[in-house]
Simulated assay, not measured.
Amino acid sequence: MFVLHIPSWYPDDSKPFTGNFIERHIEAIALKIPSVTLKVVETNQRTVTRTVEEVSPNNTVCTYYVTRKRSLLGRLFNKFLFGYYYIRGGQFIEQQFGKPSLLHLHVAFPRGSVAVQFKKKWKVPLLLTEHWSGYHARNYPSLPLKVRKELHKTWAHIDGITTVSEYLLNEIQERFPVSQSAIIYNVVDHNLFQPQPVSFPPIKLIHISTLDEDAKNFQGILEAVLEIRKKRNDFVLNIVSEFVKPQYEQWVVDHQLSDTVYFLGSKSSEEVAELLAQHHFLILYSNYENQPCVISEAFSCGKPVLSSDVGGIPEIISPDRGVIIAPQKTELLIAALEQFMDNFNRYNAENIREYAINHFSKEVIAEKFWQFYQKFTIFSQRDKKCRTQ
């Protein structure tokens, strides 16, 4: 018995962080149930058609590769190849592993149609885990009609859903029927993200995001820092992002903040863990979110978080783990940030970390998925014991 995972997002060589939270969900599930992941990816230079890798015990990833093409005709041909390789991949997996007991789709678009075809072929339950902010009221109406049609086709075949926040589940229920559901958070590796003592002064703030302005409102953070810097110089703000945003770097230079705001570039998970541990607190000020992984990672390092009150964030930030304030209110951010800098030492790092382990650890998330799976298909207790030995 095994679960076949179909991820719409998943890390690859060109985008090493895209969908890494999906990858961690699957790793957690594999602690309980043998798991196979099937994906088709574009690559600049294809050397093989298929790879099969056991990335961890009971966790196999089967990848098909398509050479990236620039021309319109080439892109159309690649679209055909994607469908073809998913068909071949399903055949290969059935030959190697047998028929899956359950299908698990991670994010409905764009791979929902693939999962639906497999459901029709094997006649097994199809579950969905959603992370996508496209369902939010502010975003859904602007989705292309084609995307919304594809979503409705996929949702007609979904047997159960998990989301990473209650907020996202509520947004989805406004648009699609949901019969069986559960809230299952993102995974944090608490063995990697651990506390460290931090030197002081200066007060060390860290912001980690894509720097997408529409979502992350990074300009709002910079403007708040500029105003505070006029009154005090006992802090620094370090920025980690896999994306280069020259306009922000130039803004920092133009406003003489080069001795306060530092852009550190892209970092590996290990480097992010080290950096979070070396700072006093994390700051986010997004316009919309679901449940950012970086908040739970900060908690695992024992760090409090200052964030906007959006999406699923209020579900995990309480007064003993940080502060949430209204979004898009720079004057509120300035006041909250100053107060946070004066009081960050009052937070109990051990309690924050304990909360993270109890809510986001791989073992906790694995058990939650196991319990949810039991509503749709019965995995034997022997299977469970084998997975946890």
Rank of each mutant, 00 (worst) to 15 (best):
V164P: 10
V364D: 04
T63P: 00
D13F: 14
P177H: 06
N58H: 12
S113T: 01
S179C: 09
L126V: 12
A224G: 06
S361W: 05
T388D: 10
S269K: 15
L222K: 04
T377R: 01
V253P: 02
E23N: 11
A356V: 06
W251N: 00
I283G: 04
G160T: 08
I325Y: 08
N345S: 08
R68Y: 00
F97S: 04
V244P: 02
V164T: 09
R232G: 04
R321F: 01
H190N: 07
I221Y: 00
F218R: 03
S269L: 15
S209N: 03
Y355Q: 03
G134K: 00
I352F: 00
A326G: 09
P7W: 06
T129C: 09
K231I: 07
L76R: 08
I378Q: 14
N78I: 07
V66L: 05
N44G: 15
L337T: 05
I158F: 00
S268W: 03
K385P: 01
D309T: 10
Y355R: 05
A215M: 11
W132T: 10
V305I: 05
E130H: 10
Q180P: 02
H136I: 15
C62R: 05
P319R: 01
Q256D: 14
N351F: 02
S269F: 06
G160Q: 06
C386V: 10
S209D: 09
E242R: 14
R387C: 13
K149R: 13
N345R: 14
N348L: 05
H5N: 13
S361Q: 02
L126M: 11
V107E: 08
P319C: 04
Q328D: 08
S8D: 11
E213T: 03
H104R: 12
H131C: 00
E271N: 12
I313G: 04
I172H: 05
I365S: 02
W370N: 10
Y288R: 09
H359Y: 13
S35A: 14
E171G: 09
P327C: 00
D12Y: 07
W370I: 06
T377S: 11
F17V: 14
E315S: 03
N217W: 03
K153I: 08
S14V: 15
N358M: 07
E315N: 02
